[in-house]
Design a binder for these strands. Structure first.
Lengths: 233, 233
DNA sequence: TTATATAACTGACCAACGGTCATTACAAGT
DNA sequence: ACTTGTAATGACCGTTGGTCAGTTATATAA
């Protein structure tokens, strides 16, 4: 029990403050998984940590800076999980499926990614935003490197794949963010529509089209890959 | 001056009420173009119409039902503009560029589309939501029909193209929704990142890949198109 | 023309939000 | 034991979306 700060004690050293910040972040992560973005209230979070709202603002300048931090964490976490599941010479379909599944499995990554630009980034200091973008650049680089060997692409092609997958992921999982219509209270035509927007198929099919498109474009350009792994139906 | 209701008069007949609803919607549209989604306040909108907040809630059950109505309008409006600009036997690139430009040009369509599932639909009555989905189904059908002849695709392929374009559009224009960083206060690496996410190129390139992917898949299936229009760089 | 019933409209009100800041109280240095 | 810097507090602020009992304009009946 050297530097562990009980929640009713004051965090004075830099180390203790960092630790308290962690406690808040962990509570925020759990709370976010419970209630999601819109219902997330700073007052409630304070109660969950045993602190008080004003105190939270000593550790995060705004609600959105807290969310931005959660987002960065989830981005890194997802990247590690995804890379760990990549193998050499995968089909583009297997790659896309793995990307989709790992992203969805992380309960915070997608909800935050979707709201990044049009909500979160609008209430965040410029230096904090710059930092966040750098984290992003770094992660794209890391994931792209693994992607290059998994899909047998050049580094430039792999980078393009990774960036584009992000774009597609946001669009494709959008329908999952709608209200939960558990009941069969919907008429058939609407149910059919929703079914046709099943996010997994939507993502995987188009991811394959895009990856194969990028691969094909690459052939006309520089060096051609040694042995291309082709797509599937 | 038969049934026109002055703003300080009461709307009693169904016609007059419909007309007043229109007035509110038009004011809302203009106000939305001014301030966007987050800063849009019902009290302010009431002031702009010469009414009072409570009155607005006679015409729209929630703020989000108002937004949902604006969305439907913008969807229909965009569809008309887009279709009017389509020609027979276009390249997929020209098609994608036209789709992108018309969507962006309509100032309300994209901001509302982006927030549809994860914000708007969560505070809307089920019947209202069903209605909205039906409007969507209808519009997809209409646009798909024009798309089929413009891109020389089967109706099924065209429908898939249209649906997928929506998905891609949301992902690709996400970066435009970030805070306006007019200043050159950003370091070079971050500026380069933002530049690499230029939404138009991002959208057009991937739209072409997807359209060509769908076209290629179609050939192995049923009837092949009479003369395929190929893509470009 | 006048009386009555209806419902469009109002504005005061509510709870909850994110965020601020003067004040308080506690841990560390002397 | 005393001093001091600052972590923590909680009362407070402005604003939000939404409600509703009461008011009053107006179409209709007498």
């Amino acid at each position: 029990m050297n530097s562990a700060v009980a929640i009713n004690q004051r965090a004075r050293s830099a180390q203790q403050k960092a630790q308290r910040r962690r406690v808040v972040l962990d509570a925020a992560q759990a709370y976010f998984l419970e209630v999601g973005y819109e219902a997330f209230s700073m007052t409630q979070l304070a109660k969950k940590t045993g602190l008080v709202k004003g105190t939270l603002y000593l550790y995060f300048k705004t609600r959105e800076e807290l969310f931005l931090t959660l987002y960065e964490q989830s981005l890194i976490r997802w990247g590690q999980v995804f890379i760990a599941r990549l193998a050499d010479a995968m089909t583009s379909k297997a790659y896309a499926q793995s990307l989709y599944k790992t992203a969805v499995a992380d309960g915070t990554f997608l909800p935050l990614l979707i709201r990044l630009e049009h909500v979160i980034e609008h209430n965040v200091s410029i230096p904090r935003l710059i930092n966040s973008k750098r984290v992003f650049i770094l992660q794209v680089g890391i994931v792209a490197r693994s992607t290059a060997s998994a899909l047998n692409l050049s580094q430039a092609q792999a980078t393009e794949v990774v960036k584009t997958m992000g774009v597609l992921l946001i669009g494709a999982t959008r329908s999952d963010q709608g209200p939960s219509l558990n009941q069969e209270e919907l008429p058939d035509d609407v149910q059919a529509l929703i079914a046709s927007f099943s996010s997994e198929t939507l993502f995987v099919k188009n991811a394959v089209r895009i990856i194969e498109g990028i691969r094909a474009e690459g052939i006309t350009d520089a060096e051609r890959p040694k042995h291309a792994s082709t797509s599937t139906t």
